[in-house]
């Protein structure tokens, strides 16, 4: 278990916690990365301000892999455009595809996501598509060249936990790529559960941004993710559907 690495597009990571950087102070990023033990952090691309006094890149510690997302994209074409601009910003080839037509539930458009994955993978990007957990779509994403598959646990920013747990389990069991649970994970216990199920990693943002103390919550998530991973690698104990099974010897009782 010493050599347990997360491998995405040939890149190896020790951490299985992908950190979001939205909705909290830039000044907290360094502590968040440190306490989360994160080696990958997500970013968004937006119109730049001429009067920008501070840039997020100045707050991200050296050596952390940047994972730009394509948020704001409503179709594959827009996602491809944002991904290319992100790469032009000069911070690597990773991209998290995020395509939404719906602004109420922020659900990903799986079909457009497959199209964008195919284009960006062919351009050499390490493509990590955010998707609604559907086995057929996940298989299409594999064929399109994805480096990982990122199913949602619950709507973005909801902190509701593993609403789609059974379907994520199917992806874990059937897809031969890292399954990274993204969106909706609100508590360390939910992250731990997803890792016990065999998820390769957890991505979280709102759970930290809305926590009482961000660095402490980042650490709680790190510990939960590590615990869940160890439990998965160990192999969970079996569950009895009926009855009980004593843990103590059934002999030598203090009676005749």
């Amino acid at each position: 278990m010493q050599n347990d690495k997360l491998i995405i597009g040939g890149h190896k990571f020790d951490s299985r916690f992908i950190l979001g950087s939205g909705k909290y102070s830039l000044k907290l990023i360094e502590a968040a990365v440190k306490y989360a033990g994160a080696q990958i952090i997500t970013l968004a691309v937006r119109r730049a301000n001429t009067k920008e006094e501070e840039n997020i890149l100045d707050y991200i510690p050296e050596g952390v892999t940047l994972l730009p997302n394509t948020s704001g994209a409503r179709n594959a074409q827009e996602a491809v455009r944002i991904a290319r601009l992100a790469r032009e910003l000069g911070c690597g080839d990773f991209v998290k595809i995020e395509i939404m037509r719906d602004s109420k539930y922020l659900l990903p458009d799986n079909q457009e996501t497959i199209k964008a994955t195919e284009i960006l993978a062919s351009e050499g990007f390490v493509v990590m598509p955010y998707m609604y957990p559907d086995l057929n779509v996940a298989r299409d994403l594999v064929n399109a060249g994805a480096a990982a598959v990122m199913p949602l646990a619950a709507p973005i920013g909801s902190n509701k936990g593993l609403s789609t747990g059974d379907f994520i389990q199917i992806l874990i069991d059937e897809i031969d790529l890292p399954i990274i649970v993204d969106a909706g994970i609100g508590r360390p216990s939910q992250a731990c559960q997803a890792m016990e199920m065999g998820a390769a990693a957890i991505m979280a943002n709102t759970a930290l941004a809305t926590a009482g103390d961000l660095p402490t919550m980042a650490e709680a998530f790190r510990l939960a993710i590590e615990a869940g991973r160890k439990a998965y690698l160990s192999g969970l104990g079996r569950v009895l559907t009926r009855g009980a099974s004593a843990s103590d010897p059934l002999t030598g009782f203090l009676r005749d």
């Binding site: 939205g22 909705k23 997500t42």
Partner: peptide, 10 residues
């Protein structure tokens, strides 16, 4: 023209 940069995001 679009002039873009990185900002915080999930």
């Amino acid at each position: 023209l679009e002039v873009v940069g990185f900002v915080g995001g999930g």
